[in-house]
Write a protein that binds this DNA or RNA. Structure first.
Lengths: 183, 183
DNA sequence: AACGGCATGTAACCCGTTACATGATTAT
DNA sequence: ATAATCATGTAACGGGTTACATGCCGTT
C-alpha cells in the first residue's frame, strides 16, 4: 500500500527509473521505508496500469533500455489524497530484538549482557550514520533541487531517526546497568 | 519466523491455548509484536509438527474443545538457541507516518500542522498507556507467577516503549515548532 | 434483540524477500 | 580474475491480514 505512494512521491520530484528509485530510497527513506527491486518493478507496473504514472523508453546499448516514469495528473491527485489521510493510528511495530529480550529471563546474566552490549554498538554506530551520511545527503539534495520546503520536512524526518537512535542507546545503557545489578 | 518463538516463549511460562496466547500478547508484547488468531493457529500446528510443543485436548460443552499446548524438551532447546542469536542487526522499520511527512512538502502549512497535532495526541495517550495499563499488567503477572527474573526483563522492555513514546512526543512538539516557523 | 467473550479453524489475498536470469562496462 | 554498477525483469516462497464459518453463553 504505502510503497506505491513512496514511489509516486519520488517520481513527483523528478522523472526516474525503477533503478533510480531504489537508490534514492537507500539514501533517504531507508530507515523508515525500503523495498527491493523485485518489489519495485511490479509495483511500478501497477501504478502505470492505474494511470498514476507514465513511462517513456530510453534506448541503451549493452544494457536493458531505461524505462523512465513520469507522474500524471491523476497520480498527483492520488498522492495528495494519501498525504491528507489523518494520522490517527499507531504504526504496528515489529521489533525482534525486544521480543528476544522479553523472553531472555531464562538466559544467564553474562549472555544477556553480551546481547545488550552488541546492540549498544550497533545503535551507537547508527547515531553517527544519521548525523553524518544522511544529514549530508539531505543537505546536498536540498541545495541541488532547490526544494526548500521539502528540505525542511526531510530534515525533520532525519531528526526523528537521530532522536530514535539516541534514545535507543540511552535505554541500552540503562538496561545494562539494571541487568548487572538485578540479575 | 519470530512468531514461532514468541508463542514458544509464552507456552514455556505455562501450558496454554491459542486463544490464551492471543490475549497474553495483547497484554504484553503488543507494542513490539502481535499476531492475529488466523496466524496463531496454523503456527501452533507447525510447532507441534516440529516436536517443539505437544497438545492435550480438554473437552468442553457448547464451545470447541480446548487444545492446550505444552513445551517439549526440544522446544526449550530451540528457544534457548534462538535467544542466543547475536543481536548484531538493525530491525527494518516501516513507519508510514514518517513516509507521509517526508513527502508532505506539497501540502499547505495548516494541513501539515493538523497532521502533526493529531499524531501528538495519539502518542501522548500512548505514553500514559505504557505508564499505567502495561506497567500494572506486568507487575501483576510478575507477582502472580513469581517469575522475578523474567519480570526484570519485562519491565525493561516496557521502559523502552515508554521512552520511545516520550521521544516521539518531544519530536512532534519540535516538528510543530519548526513547521510553524519555517514553512 | 444485539453485541462481546469464548474457542476453534479455513480461504483468499496482499506484501515482501530471496533466488534466478541476462549481459555489458568499469573498478579493484 | 573478481566484484560492483548499470538495468530490466520473473518465480517461488513466506509472513501477515481480512473475511468467513460455527455456535453457545452472558450482558446490555
Amino acid at each position: 500500500m504505502a510503497l506505491k505512494y513512496a514511489l509516486l512521491g519520488f517520481i513527483r520530484y523528478a522523472p526516474m527509473t525503477g533503478y533510480d528509485l531504489k537508490k534514492y530510497m537507500e539514501l533517504s527513506t531507508r530507515y523508515f521505508w525500503t523495498a527491493e527491486l523485485a518489489q519495485i518493478y511490479p509495483t511500478l507496473k501497477q501504478l502505470e496500469d492505474a494511470g498514476w504514472i507514465e513511462s517513456e523508453i530510453e534506448p541503451q546499448v549493452g544494457k536493458p533500455d531505461k524505462k523512465i516514469y513520469t507522474i500524471t495528473k491523476a497520480g498527483k491527485k492520488a498522492q495528495q489524497e494519501w498525504l491528507k489521510q489523518p494520522l490517527d493510528f499507531l504504526p504496528t511495530v515489529k521489533e525482534p530484538v525486544l521480543l528476544q529480550l522479553f523472553f531472555s529471563g531464562v538466559l544467564d546474566k553474562e549472555t544477556i549482557l553480551a546481547q545488550l552490549r552488541l546492540q549498544l554498538q550497533v545503535h551507537r554506530d547508527q547515531v553517527k550514520v544519521h548525523q553524518t551520511e544522511i544529514k549530508d545527503a539531505i543537505q546536498e539534495i536540498t541545495l541541488f533541487t532547490k526544494l526548500q520546503r521539502d528540505g525542511v520536512m526531510w530534515e525533520l524526518v532525519r531528526e526523528f531517526g537521530e532522536g530514535y537512535e539516541k534514545q535507543y542507546v540511552k535505554w541500552l545503557e540503562h538496561a545494562i546497568k539494571i541487568v548487572e545489578e538485578k540479575l
